[in-house]
Computed example of a mutant assay.
Amino acid sequence: MCALFRDHRVEPVPEVGESMQKARERTLGVARDQEMYLLMQMRRPGDAKLRWVRR
């Protein structure tokens, strides 16, 4: 996977009317909102859309 994406970076997809900074903050909040099961899982992963962008 590292070789496939070595020329890319990941960034959040802003919602309508949302700045990139707010999208980053929202995505971090989604990533940090976790519950402990057998493994940690994000509770709302669908709330943080991401895209791979070639550098």
Rank of each mutant, 00 (worst) to 15 (best):
V13I: 05
M1C: 11
V53G: 03
S19M: 00
L4F: 06
V53P: 06
E15F: 10
R9M: 14
A48Q: 08
D7Y: 08
K22R: 07
A23V: 00
P14H: 01
V10F: 14
G46P: 03
R51I: 01
D7I: 02
G46I: 00
A31R: 11
P12N: 02
D47P: 06
L38C: 11
R24E: 15
W52Y: 15
L28D: 13
L38K: 12
H8M: 03
V53H: 02
R32S: 09
M1Q: 05
R55F: 12
E35A: 07
D7Q: 06
C2K: 07
Q41S: 08
M36S: 12
L39E: 12
F5R: 11
L4E: 11
T27I: 09
D33L: 05
G29E: 04
E18P: 00
K49W: 06
R51Q: 06
V13S: 01
M36N: 10
D47V: 03
S19D: 01
M36H: 14
P45I: 01
P45Y: 00
M40Y: 10
P12E: 01
R9H: 15
R24W: 14
T27P: 08
E11A: 05
L38N: 15
E11H: 04
L50I: 14
L39C: 14
R55K: 11
R55H: 13
G46N: 05
M42F: 08
V13T: 02
G29C: 00
A48H: 07
E11I: 04
C2Q: 13
M20A: 03
R24F: 13
K49R: 15
R24K: 13
M42I: 15
A3E: 14
L39Q: 15
V53L: 03
K22N: 06
F5Q: 08
R6M: 12
M1D: 12
R32A: 11
K22Y: 04
H8T: 05
G17I: 01
R9A: 11
G29W: 01
L38Y: 13
R44P: 04
E11K: 05
Y37H: 14
T27F: 13
